[in-house]
Design a protein around this nucleic acid. Structure first.
Lengths: 352, 352
DNA sequence: CTGAAAGCGCTTACAG
DNA sequence: CTGAAAGCGCTTACAG
């Protein structure tokens, strides 16, 4: 039985059992250099003669050599693992974020380790510390609402783990931040509704524990103000970013006199609840009521009527976040497609 | 500030910078044994005197020692990483599966690395091999449809990587399988519709590349047969597990004469499409048409009318799959709650 | 620009 | 039941 990890190199019979992977020693021997020099090539050190480098690279390519991340990590005292730490319960958000991170990590040799968590657990911080320290994570990407928890950022700094926070607005030094700028989305929603002639408009916020709740609302109010409108006190409700809370708040809002002709919900889940409530109360959308959501998750296209909403480019944001983490950051440039943008569908129409 | 896992012990000044974690050498010295003996305790070897073991365990607990997975992995020639390899595009499925795997891995020292993939990519197998070999994965969990690809199972066997396949029906030796038994769900749907008095019933299948498409259909047909009914040829359509394909197939089915009074869709996405098509064609649900889905994803409760569907306990299945992988398997027992089950909501009613 | 030695924190293979 | 030596596949710290 062939032994794995045994030095069979040249002397090895091909095609029998799992072949041994070449190591840095094999490459060094084959290229006629020391393994330290091979190490320099792996780590892109400038102190290697061009000719030597090319010879080594040829041998590496020929033998399909890839350095062992565990051995490298052990020597570096840091793994090649990047953690995604999140407590957002929306599957679509989570998956989009993961895909974005993977986009950015492709070909880098890093791998993605996922770590959902619960900020209200008494062992939350201890668990997180154990996770990051034990795996010697290279870094973590934090998404809302954990990204807004100062204790988490402090913990990472204390451990010496790189981190990038994804949040609706800057809450840290630029090198630690990717801002989604939700405020712009709120403004766009207000502008759209104002353009359609709506005067009495309502808003359902997310929970105060999410910074985005405030940003979306402030953006909405700013957008209304720019058009000479305002959010009246009785037209602002606090939801919980859930379908059920959307229903509940909409019931209250649709019972108002005069009834608002438009509702901007803090996310698509709650907007789905608004549509549900409207149906239950015999209010037609968009004839009697316009509805705008936030996120543009798949549900927005499945609803009936399909939902006008604010698209947030989560996957793209994820890519930017890891690139920042890996030090390949976009430093300064701010691609247009990373900002929230309005997507008009069937749930909005002219004010009655 | 209390520090976790830090070797503050005798020799260290407290509170300055990131503290050094205790190593196996520290524990050995503190317990007055060789590091090999500590290693035996870590690996639960029976060849340690009870008294010695207890002394070592006490020191480990006192200092919050946790062995370094990278060092251990390097020596073992195998990491403590478990990969989730999937190509299912549904976010809810992916997230539920991840949560289930994490449930099963909790406290085990393993971590979850995610690997979405595309079976139609020309580099699919090569990428997968590179991923598994490079990280020296302990094992992988494969979900549909990659779990149904024999090349993938053969690849894992060749590399020497443990694997468990999650599939609707057994496609491998028992130790490599977690069956979701979708057939039972199809039967339950048929029974429910038959009980409501439906005679002319229709079915929209998933794509043939998914084994579940066939299982769900065969279960449905068997269930009908048991009640003296059958799926007529014009009432069976092939969809693609997508919302759009659900709309399309439903349009065709609802144009039939006589019109079917019930449609069983192969998944919730397509069922959502059926509801959409019915609305467009003025067919009332459930008065004129009963609709049953499969999955019980969140969308089922958001739809209007809310969807009667077959619940598949994805999270539980995920937990069973990793436990099997880690060798803690449920060996034989088959908990009731891991089988598909009918959830009745508003989209089904008595035949007209 | 290049290399020999020591070390990262564990386990294997051998002894006893 | 326990341990000293060697090794897993890399990098750091020093030399030259």
């Amino acid at each position: 039985m062939p032994k794995r990890g045994a030095p069979e190199s040249e002397e090895q019979a091909a095609g029998e059992g799992p072949r041994r992977r070449p190591t840095i020693n094999d490459i060094a021997r084959l290229a006629g250099v020391s393994k330290k020099t091979v190490s320099r090539v792996i780590n892109a050190s400038p102190y290697v003669q061009k000719e030597t480098r090319e010879r080594i690279e040829a041998v590496i390519a020929e033998h399909g050599y890839a350095p062992d991340p565990q051995a490298r990590g052990l020597a570096f005292r840091r793994s090649f693992l990047i953690g995604l730490v999140y407590d957002n319960p929306n599957p679509q958000y989570v998956v989009n974020m993961q895909l974005g991170l993977l986009d950015g990590m492709k070909g880098s040799g890093f791998e993605l380790v996922v770590h959902p968590c619960n900020r209200t657990s008494p062992t939350f911080l201890a668990d997180l510390r154990a996770f990051v320290e034990r795996q010697r994570l290279f870094g973590v990407v934090l998404t809302p609402s954990v990204s807004e928890d100062e204790r988490v950022a402090a913990l990472m700094a204390d451990i010496g783990c790189e981190y990038v926070r994804v949040a609706s607005v800057s809450v840290d030094a630029p090198e630690h931040m990717i801002e989604t700028r939700d405020r712009l989305g709120g403004e766009a929603a207000a502008q759209h509704l104002a353009d359609l002639g709506h005067k009495r408009v309502a808003f359902i916020s997310g929970p105060p524990s999410f910074r985005s709740s405030r940003e979306r609302r402030e953006g909405f109010e700013a957008g209304l103000a720019a058009r000479g409108l305002r959010l009246e006190a009785d037209c602002a409700r606090e939801g919980a970013y859930t379908f059920e809370s959307g229903i509940e708040c909409a019931h209250a809002l649709l019972g108002l006199t005069p009834r608002p002709t438009a509702i901007f919900a803090g996310n698509d889940e709650m907007a789905a609840g608004v549509l549900q409530a409207a149906r239950q109360m015999g209010v037609r959308v968009p004839e009697d009521l316009s509805v705008v959501g936030f996120d543009d998750f798949e549900i927005a296209r499945r609803l009936w009527p399909s939902l006008t909403t604010i698209r947030t480019p989560t996957r793209e944001i994820g890519r930017l976040a890891v690139e920042r983490l890996m030090g390949l950051g976009d430093d300064g440039r701010e691609p247009k497609d990373r900002l929230p943008s309005l997507v008009v569908r069937e749930s909005t129409g002219p004010a009655a």
